[in-house]
């Protein structure tokens, strides 16, 4: 797997730890929701950065009180047509103010990157064989937006500008 972050392919420091495997001492580790529920106390005391992976049927309300424990949350797209995680991402960013890395994992495709980024994802786990140049273009194909979403810090104005005339364009980048 490769990782797109900050407009480039980046090395991925995180490892996904199977539910029955030992966690690394202090390296960044991602655990499942089931593992978190089972080992919460121990995991919260651990030294290294901790990430959580949620399935598309595991809404973030279930960990609303624990978010401070995570440096990363990975939201799964089991199929690209399963769009639940778009809402989960916005809820994490906008309702709960989660500021860590929000990673899209699973069936992540080039043509979905634009929507994912606007919902608050800032990291994308993709296949190793992608043409990175072409994939990065996906973030900039559409520069006009009509509605505020996650990370639109001037959200009200975003909608205003979209409803108002004039060439004001909003540059959208990853």
């Amino acid at each position: 797997m490769a990782l797109i972050k900050d407009n480039a392919l980046r090395p991925d420091a995180w490892v996904l730890v199977a539910d029955d495997a030992e966690l690394p001492e202090s390296d960044p580790a991602i655990v499942s929701f089931a593992r978190w529920r089972r080992d919460r106390a121990r995991l919260a005391r651990r030294n290294g950065p901790l990430g959580l992976r949620l399935g598309s049927d595991q809404p973030p309300e279930g960990v609303a009180d624990d978010l401070a424990a995570f440096d990363l949350i990975a939201l799964e797209f089991p199929k690209f047509t399963d769009g639940r995680a778009y809402s989960y991402a916005r809820i994490l960013r906008e309702r709960y103010g989660f500021a860590g890395e929000l990673r899209a994992v699973g069936n992540v495709l080039r043509d979905q990157l634009f929507f994912m980024r606007r919902c608050g994802f800032d990291a994308f786990e993709v296949g190793d064989d992608i043409d990175i140049g072409a994939w990065l273009e996906a973030f900039a194909e559409i520069e006009v937006i009509y509605q505020p979403a996650a990370g639109d810090t001037h959200a009200l104005q975003a909608l205003r500008t979209s409803l108002s005339p004039g060439p004001t364009r909003m540059r959208v980048t990853a």
Partner: peptide, 17 residues
């Protein structure tokens, strides 16, 4: 028209059930 604009390429609602 307002709804048309708001819903156009809405990032959250492009893969509804």
């Amino acid at each position: 028209e307002i709804i048309r604009q708001w819903s156009t390429l809405h990032p959250e609602f492009t893969f509804l059930p």
